[in-house]
Nucleic acid binder design. Structure first.
Lengths: 116, 116
DNA sequence: CAGGATCCAATGCGATACTG
DNA sequence: CAGTATCGCATTGGATCCTG
């Protein structure tokens, strides 16, 4: 990689496009970012997430959580009790992603205001 | 909206998740970000983009460009000549998005290194 | 050159039913 | 409670052919 400096500029080296795609392939689906934002507040249980992430099906919550776990963005902790209790939380890596996403959130918010 | 302050924190208010989805719905498809990165370098013609954005079909390039244009992220300029000449470029809004995306690029790059 | 139109395959996702 | 398994629909995207 030849240019790692001023990423503040609007003009970026081309190969970076692929990099973005890597990220988008991870969190660019319908629910991942939504779930990450929820876990950003505090650890959550399965059913709790299902209520908070509006409209998500039980299947997709499972699929999404599995994917995020496999990518090392969230941690899954099982408590060996009955009834089962499973808590999901962001890993340090997941938190860095959430931080990284913040400017994008901000951009989206600004855009929403303009388009009202 | 109740919290518009410190977006630098890892903990973000929940409703923001929807905001991210708005953005992801716009540029979270397979090719948009890729095209935006290319146009970030300089204006491009259709065929030129098709060569640079590796693997994109002619149909998807058309669809992607139309979408970005409708969302006000890129500008389409037609030169009334034969053979036709059409140039695409980022709008100011598109450039702000590209800037916003920079940290995400950086994050992805770091991640790639770790996972090698 | 820069597309529009059409057809088809792959995937994403929701609904539903069942389980330790 | 926290899942797994199966089905079927809707969307996405690629290939191909055609045009001003």
């Amino acid at each position: 990689m030849e240019a790692e400096g001023s990423l503040q500029q609007a003009v970026l080296p081309a190969p970076i496009g692929c990099r973005v795609r890597e990220v988008l392939d991870r969190v660019g689906d319908k629910w991942s970012v939504y779930v990450i934002c929820q876990l950003g507040e505090s650890p959550r249980r399965f059913t709790q997430l299902r209520k908070e992430v509006d409209g998500i099906s039980q299947r997709m919550l499972t699929v999404t959580l599995r994917g995020l776990e496999r990518d090392g963005l969230i941690h899954r902790q099982v408590f060996p009790v009955v009834p089962p209790r499973v808590e999901y939380s962001l890993t340090p890596l997941g938190r860095t992603l959430l931080c990284t996403l913040a400017p994008v959130l901000d951009w989206a918010a600004t855009l929403s205001v303009r388009m009202s």
